[in-house]
Amino acid sequence: MIRVKNLVKHFGDLKAVDGITFTVENGEIFGFLGPNGAGKTTTIRMLSCIIRPTSGNAYLNGYNILDNPMEIRSMVGILTENPCLYERLTPVANLDFFGKLYDIPKTIRATRIDEILEMFDLQDRKFEKVETFSKGMKQKLALARSLLHDPQILFLDEPTSALDPKTAKGVRDYIKKLSEGGDKIIFICTHNLTEAEYLCDRVAVIDHGKIVGIGSPEELSRDIWKGEQVEIAIKNYDSHIEQSLKQLNFIKNFEYQDHILRIDVNDTSKDNPRIVETLVKSGAQIVSVEIKRHSLEDIYLNLVRD
């Protein structure tokens, strides 16, 4: 579990992170979204104990970032925005070096390296210099390095940036697979909202160092638009139907346009059955009923206004 309490980071006069507080549960894929310079990378750097906060604290599986940096570094894996690979060395030399730093015993290190290279389809190139690798291969190797010590918490900073669509999908699928049935926390910083929507259970949106929204996309949507909207396609809309809808006092607003009836309610799961029942009773010929979902992009653009 990650528990962040009032975390602040100043760089001179600049408040890079301004009092953020949130919690991430075990087994969650958590998205950290925000524009460039919003404080995403600074937050990851504080949580992985590369830099110290100006004030506040964070607890990762019971250890806090101020007093237990070594314990935290041992339990987290990090994929930085740049792959951070020693390009003149081979994948085996890169992983062996980090295996030593993460205290993987010599007796199992070679086997573990082989396993992880196999997992990422890099076995055939394991003795070639990294500088000969494509961007996608380097990213896979960097991901392999972050997983080498089987971390309980994984920080991924823009994991698919600069990757071609096929490789990006491969990396996304792998991240999804990693979280299945386990209690690992996967904390992803990304600009890619489609990716965040596909991968993340919950997201936090950070802007100018402050968290401006946190929750599942559905929760955020409800919070922003103060309810939900249902779209009902009706063939024979008339004044009788309109009158019957006006009788339903839980409806906040409705409009009919181009054969589509748009109704604003608080909670579609509770209100939809009653709306449909009323419409059918008043003779409406319903073609379709669809809950209008706001995409993560809509949510993000609403929260990050500048």
Binding site: I50, N82, C84, E87, F98
Partner: peptide, 14 residues
């Protein structure tokens, strides 16, 4: 310069 330092700084080494 080669942007390799961050992973090293994140590792459990004092």
């Amino acid at each position: 310069e080669r942007k390799t330092i961050e992973a090293l700084l994140a590792a459990p080494i004092s």
